[in-house]
């Protein structure tokens, strides 16, 4: 791993809480690592496990999924489904040898700009420890 390795993190944020939370962090000028690429989804329950797989295949070194706190979901219960599914996915990926440090999930509400910063810092730090993801990255075909 080179000295100045910067991990690539893909973050799936729910429209109603975490995306607004990240936005708040921005408007309040909270500094957080710039390794995060945000993809806005309507609900954390909308995140298909294949999003995570695809992100890792296509160049992400870590994935973050963030939604509203349990009980605060805009769609009442989407994040409960997400929690169950992503918990399973994490176990499965760990079982096939993907470092659990590459996969995080968090609850960040629209008013938690500072929590967002902490979450990102932790995600980036752990992904940095895990190093560049080689695993099942899609390789360019050399014809």
């Amino acid at each position: 791993m080179s000295e100045n390795y910067e991990p690539n993190i893909v973050a799936f944020l729910c429209n109603w809480c975490s995306y607004a939370g990240a936005d708040l962090a921005g408007t309040s000028r909270v500094h957080y690592p710039a390794n995060i690429q945000v993809i806005r989804v309507m609900c954390s329950g909308r995140v298909n496990p294949l999003y995570v797989m695809n992100a890792l295949q296509q160049g992400a070194d870590g994935v973050l999924i963030s939604g509203c706190h349990p009980g605060d979901c805009h769609y009442m219960e989407g994040n409960f489904y997400a929690r169950r599914r992503m918990g399973m996915l994490k176990d499965l990926m760990e079982f096939v040898g993907v470092d659990p440090k590459r996969f995080h999930m968090s609850w960040v509400s629209a008013s938690e700009g500072h929590k967002w910063k902490e979450v990102v810092e932790k995600t980036v730090e752990e992904a940095r420890e895990a190093g560049p993801f080689e695993g099942f990255r899609r390789r360019q075909i050399d014809w």
Binding site: P70, R84, P100, M105, S106
Partner: peptide
């Protein structure tokens, strides 16, 4: 009360 120990 599903497990959520993995959530930040």
């Amino acid at each position: 009360d599903d497990p959520e120990d993995f959530i930040l």
